[in-house]
Design a protein around this nucleic acid. Structure first.
Lengths: 194, 194
DNA sequence: ATAGTTCTTGAACTACAGGTCAAAAATCAG
DNA sequence: CTGATTTTTGACCTGTAGTTCAAGAACTAT
């Protein structure tokens, strides 16, 4: 049942994850095929053989980023606590992750849309899908809170979800330049209405 | 008192403004010296003679962007109305400007920090200064509102200013992918607490 | 007019990005 | 083993980014 022919000596999924780190840290334009080869340990030729082009590999990277992001979000939001507590925990976690790394690199999806969104409709659609997903996850957690009784029933969960995703995007932009104290204060202010 | 030597046949400030449009639309990496020469009508050699390098010209562009942004903000915030009304007007204006152009290009400063912030400390500092300026302008307008009696005296103007700048950053990110209706709804939600 | 200065023009250069390809290597079917 | 298939390797290629430079043009001062 094995595929015929010489076997790959790498796992595409691992390579995509390594490429994600490189694109995330250096940006799309500033990541060369040579960089990717070095970061993954796979020859340039093999990368092209497997993924077709730099842009296609980046597409796979965005898919992975979307998947991981959604998983982390679902995980954190579903832990015990009120909606407000869990949403705060998510925002704090992401801010901490942004600041704890050796270099501020923000959100890969936002960086992608900023860098290539202007001339790459597919990239824009991919990022839109991620954002919509996040809106839904926020909204769903708020509705859960309404059922649990820790969120006002009068609140428009959908609108609040959209707002929270905006806040998250803003936070990650601010996390490129501001310090932790300011970012925590922003979280407090943004969640004051919940 | 005229400068000695052959006169320039272009205005550096105009060239900077034209370069701003190009960088804004295409992004930093994707804008070549040839693009800049075409956009400005000035020869590549002259551009280098005058500005030194692509990166230095971009530095001037960021300075101009900062100046224009601050001027527009001060203008809009100082028109008649309550603090909430004026801040809403500013957010609406910026969203409209983002959406009315032929191509979604977001905020030049955010794009810059997303694209080159990771390996360009000077760019990061320039964007931080702009953001801090905006925080101050928001805070000052809120304090004005407190004196006018249309903003709660208990409100922490500094924290709210930081929050509003974050909201603005998030909005402009969302303006890359979402439609006008969603963005207006976000503004409503974000300002509900004022 | 000449000298000194500053700007323009366009060719030239180096380096590397992004991608292709031919040949060899590693597997499987028969 | 042979042949078919798939992958690896690394050399190679084309185009362009970013920059420099030499020559000449346009000005001021004397």
């Amino acid at each position: 049942m094995n595929p015929v022919g010489r076997p790959k000596n790498f796992e595409p999924d691992v390579v995509i994850a390594q490429a994600m780190e490189t694109f995330w840290t250096k940006g799309y334009a500033d990541t060369s095929p040579a960089d990717l080869a070095e970061a993954t340990g796979v020859g340039k030729g093999s990368l092209y053989h497997c993924f077709g082009s730099k842009r296609e590999l980046f597409g796979k990277v965005l898919d992975l980023y979307n998947k991981v992001g959604a998983e982390v979000t679902e995980q954190v939001l579903s832990e015990p606590g009120t909606a407000k507590e869990r949403i705060r925990a998510l925002l704090v976690l992401l801010v901490d992750m942004d600041l704890d790394g050796p270099v501020r690199r923000g959100c890969l999806a936002q960086n992608a849309v900023a860098e290539i969104g202007g001339h790459d409709e597919a990239a824009k659609r991919a990022v839109l899908r991620m954002e919509q997903r996040m809106v839904e996850l926020f909204a769903a957690r708020l509705e859960q809170g309404q059922r649990d009784g820790d969120v006002d029933r009068a609140l428009n969960a959908r609108a609040q979800g959209l707002y929270l995703e905006t806040t998250l995007a803003g936070l990650r932009t601010m996390a490129m330049t501001f310090d932790r104290k300011a970012l925590y204060q922003i979280i407090d202010t943004a969640l004051a209405g919940l």
